[in-house]
């Protein structure tokens, strides 16, 4: 989980608490890109960098009270997620962060028979590898658009799991959701992207 070029949390945390500038630079170099990536998923590109910077100040402020119940990386990302969420609530009161829990089905019910088996099953895709799919500029665009229209927490889940390769356990701590809700968020996000690819490929 930890970054390859970073000292262990045990070495790093006391140095950060002692305001060691070299250690500051090390953690920022190791984690800032990832923090911006997560912030982007929740609040969008325009203010993601600002949110990540704000999170660093919050990290330093909270560090003396860090209880080590997770890795430093997970804990820092949780602060990013919380900073981003409160920004989002502040800026657009109408956006619901909990859209994940809405009961919309994974598959359009019109595609299923009354006995819950396929009536209109998935069609073959033209391409059968990621590279072949992504070779199409049009499809790259479809995927990007589908990602952009996901609810914030679904986008965060898919970013951390399928783009950054974090464990589900860490992701649920970072987003402050239960294990089962975290899995629902991830699966809904993946399914929406799958449907976007299918619309393009399955004809």
């Amino acid at each position: 989980m930890a970054h390859p070029t970073l000292p262990s949390d045990d070495e790093l945390i006391p140095r950060l608490l002692a305001n060691d500038e070299t250690s500051y630079a090390q953690v920022v170099a190791a984690y800032h890109g990832l923090m911006v990536h997560l912030a982007r998923a929740i609040v969008g590109e325009a203010i993601a960098d600002e949110v990540a910077q704000e999170a660093w100040v919050a990290v330093l402020r909270a560090l003396p009270k860090f209880e080590r119940r997770s890795s430093l990386k997970t804990w820092i990302l949780r602060i990013v997620s919380n900073t981003a969420k409160s920004r989002l609530r502040h800026e657009s009161r109408t956006v619901s962060l909990d859209e994940s829990l809405e009961e919309s089905p994974i598959i359009d019910p019109a595609r299923l028979k009354p006995n819950a088996h396929w009536a209109s099953p998935p069609a073959m895709w033209h391409a059968d590898t990621p590279d072949a799919l992504l070779a199409s500029a049009e499809l790259r665009c479809c995927i990007s658009d589908a990602l952009a229209t996901l609810p914030p927490l679904q986008r965060a889940a898919v970013t951390l799991r399928d783009m950054q390769g974090l464990s589900m356990e860490a992701i649920c701590k970072i987003l402050e959701v239960s294990e089962s809700n975290g899995r629902v968020l991830l699966h809904r996000a993946r399914s929406r992207i799958q449907m976007a690819i299918e619309e393009h490929e399955g004809q």
Binding site: A25, A29, P130, L133, I143, Q194
Partner: peptide, 29 residues
């Protein structure tokens, strides 16, 4: 197709971790 979707998400341009320049690091420090 779900498996392929997951692998494709991981390789899509959106999956790239944003780059951070040494100047940015210094400014944050």
């Amino acid at each position: 197709q779900l498996k392929l979707t997951i692998d494709t998400i991981g390789k899509s341009p959106d999956a790239t971790t944003p780059n951070v320049s040494p100047e940015e690091i210094q400014a944050i420090v």
